[in-house]
Design a protein around this nucleic acid. Structure first.
Lengths: 130, 130
DNA sequence: TGGTTAATTAGCTGATTAGTATAATGCTAA
DNA sequence: TTAGCATTATACTAATCAGCTAATTAACCA
């Protein structure tokens, strides 16, 4: 019984599923419409399974229209994921700063604009064990 | 051979691993320090495995300090994930707007501040198949 | 040298996942 | 009522994952 956030991240951890979500940004689509780009590499039941994962994660909602199941994007669960990530925003910058420092030691500076700020998160000392 | 983004999301799809990352925001920590909060529910080798997943995803770097392996957070891979999510920002809002609309039909409005804007992404019509 | 601590490896189990092929369901239209 | 399309269900395989115990490596200290 995985928590919601894990289910969301898990659903996103597959390129086929991410492509389906990207396709749904352009609007509703039926299952076979969604499957069409993948039918070279995957069968229709395969796509159905991926859709079920997205559905379980609440990222896709399936309607009914005669024999079609128009699927729509529901990005609400992404909100939680994005909020979780926001906590790491400052560390993303810090990592890039570190990367910048590293590059400066390897290659001559190539006229970067703003790489001058002090590191945003001073590393805490490693206080041995216990 | 999963792509980088899938590896990142996959690594995040576990509460233990997310807790480890959260812990590392406060600075370096040894493996046993990281394991300590989980030792009630999990053994040390279990934590080592989770750390290996995080390491493979590039989210954690392990150093050497005598018999300890001080682990540090590397949030750089999160940058890509965050950028991927940014494409869905507008749809997160749209979902919330839809939620707001729905709530308005169910309960009397409870003095919400700004819930007045038109939907940010007009739903595209479902053009049957083909 | 031997003992202790930190961490990993190896080998196992059970659960989950991604994929397949084929069969079944449900709807529309002739 | 039957044919045909869209979708899902079933049943199977192979691979991966999360967890365990027990054993091993590696470093320190006395």
């Amino acid at each position: 019984m995985p928590d919601t956030l894990s289910q969301t991240f898990s659903a996103l951890a597959d390129p086929t599923r991410r492509a389906i979500l990207a396709r749904l940004r352009q609007g509703e689509a039926s299952v076979s419409q969604l499957a069409e780009p993948f039918l070279g590499q995957m069968t229709l039941p395969g796509v159905t399974k991926h859709l079920k994962v997205l559905e379980r994660a609440g990222l896709v909602t399936k309607g009914r229209e005669a024999q079609w199941r128009p699927c729509t994007l529901n990005a609400a669960p992404l909100k939680d994921a994005a909020e979780w990530m926001d906590e790491y925003r400052v560390f993303m910058e810090a990592s890039l700063d570190r990367l910048g420092e590293y590059l400066k030691t390897v290659a001559p500076p190539v006229r970067e604009s703003t790489l001058t700020d002090p590191p945003t998160s001073p590393p805490a000392p490693f206080d041995d064990h216990r």
